[in-house]
Design a protein around this nucleic acid. Sequence first.
DNA 1: CTGTTAGCGCCTTCAT
DNA 2: ATGAAGGCGCTAACAG
Lengths: 341, 341
Amino acid sequence: MEEKKQATIVDVAKAAGVSVATVSRVVNGNYPVKRETQEKVKAAINSLNYVPNVQARELNTRKSTTIGVVVPGLHNMFFAEVIDGIEEAVRQIGFSFLLNCAKNDPKQESQAINALVARNVSGIIVISPNTKNIKESFYEKLVERVPLVFINGYHRINGVSYVGNDEQLGCKTALDYLQGLGHKRILFVRGDNSDSYDIKEETYRQVMTEDSNTAEAYIVNIGEGNGVDTVDATMAVLVKKLPQLKPTAIFCCNDLMAVGALNACKRLRLSVPQDISIMGYDNIALSRLVEPKLTTMDQNMFQLGESAAKLLIETIRGGKSKRILLDNVLVVRDTTGEVSR
Amino acid sequence: MEEKKQATIVDVAKAAGVSVATVSRVVNGNYPVKRETQEKVKAAINSLNYVPNVQARELNTRKSTTIGVVVPGLHNMFFAEVIDGIEEAVRQIGFSFLLNCAKNDPKQESQAINALVARNVSGIIVISPNTKNIKESFYEKLVERVPLVFINGYHRINGVSYVGNDEQLGCKTALDYLQGLGHKRILFVRGDNSDSYDIKEETYRQVMTEDSNTAEAYIVNIGEGNGVDTVDATMAVLVKKLPQLKPTAIFCCNDLMAVGALNACKRLRLSVPQDISIMGYDNIALSRLVEPKLTTMDQNMFQLGESAAKLLIETIRGGKSKRILLDNVLVVRDTTGEVSR
DNA sequence: CTGTTAGCGCCTTCAT
DNA sequence: ATGAAGGCGCTAACAG
């Protein structure tokens, strides 16, 4: 109980009657050691309950087996699933990771990253890096010091790796699908301040103007798109807009908004998908939990995290930075159907 | 780009024309240093972009400012919210944390913990510690080496701190509320293998037998209670049970099950809460996102995490282990109402 | 095969 | 107020 300090390699060496070097060798198994000596050492390790001090090891070898992960927050299930993927990949190669939340605050983000650097992480994954920090070339300097992978960052920085989804293509796929069902009046629902929304809006404009030019009025911004209140905010806005705009389908930039749209329809006694179709984006767990289940574009968050982790490790081991773009796949469930006539 | 190795304290000392001791002093501000010398050192630090190596510092001082967190997984939003609370508390005092997922696997859990110990964490928070590991006194030995806090662990271990909810009282509150609304036939929905469910079931039995003795048939187990499929599994089971049992209310051991119950009612065209009341437990974000919004018991996960982190830090600094029991509070929303007659 | 030794980057007496 | 030197626990040559 009384802070009995941990056994060190010296203690083990003493107990086994060998040198510290020998202990180190059997622990790491990187040099030949005679059978019997091994036994003795292992016995000593067990009886002393010895656990090698990774900090000391890494200080010495100037390597590090922990990486840093910076995320806007855990409230959004999207991020939780990404982290799940990172965890899986990281664990498999014996690395650990330090987690930090930046809360969409550029200062908090850069502080978190400095703390990570001080702790000697061998690389950092940043999910949705803050635009302000990017602008101020914070990351340009950082990447000269430590390997960096962005998940869902939309700006190129020399030397920074990048994993993301082809949201442009994904969005087009979704819209094409809706049009294929006969929908002409498609409402576009987005949130504030995200390159992701901008990309989708641009795609929407391209796709829609080919057929119609009503697009402008059909683009609605519901404010903060990733918060706890996104669902309710979306519902509130759509309860007003829907009766006047009378779309036959709603494309939402993420599943939270889509659930909000679904709830709005319930309020208005519009039945989905008979009266109106709803399409989400992301395929977070929530999309399968509501009734009816959401049709959505799968961003495969787990794979996003997994790829990012693998890419980072690769870079740490000397690989060059690169970009990986995953394809989104359409998941048809119960909120979309042929346009009613 | 080329692995330009970090500046060390020696580099700074050289650049500033002082000794390493002096640099150390201005960095840590723990000993007096003349004004001008400070300036010189700070200038050197800036120009060299020096960041103190925490690993080396901690090796030397035998202290550590990182803690470990072990969680069953991130799929369940419950855990994500707890971690959010931990993150907040930990960051405020300048600590960091390593995150590990144990996936409900006792071996993975103990491995994760060993990795944490090797990395010299100053304490560990375990969320829902695995019963098997507890039985095998894994934790009893561990706590002699490093401070431990359990969140939602239901077994006392000497020296281990504990933060949890008074689920017994919470459950009784919920049931009383339902009975106050006039409900007699209350279905009890639980999952497999969790002390949490056992406690609630026991409470249910006590409360119910006072009035009726139909309890037995009204207890239904839907299997895995925290997975991605919990909602659907619950729905499937209840779609069968509801017509035969005809309860007027359903008490669910967590919100996932409650959403499943809600979906089952939709399928059966039972309207909630007019035909039947549904009560969840936890108050995860999801409970506010469905329509109608769930009435539930708030476990305040954020506070759970925050308290655990603070308690751990306290213990690390020499405090004695203790138990904290938070009170759950009833959150009345839209899925419960007076029994219909 | 095994032992000896020199650091890794930093903090901390102990002198000055 | 500052510098010199020892050591935290470990690994990696270098000898034997």
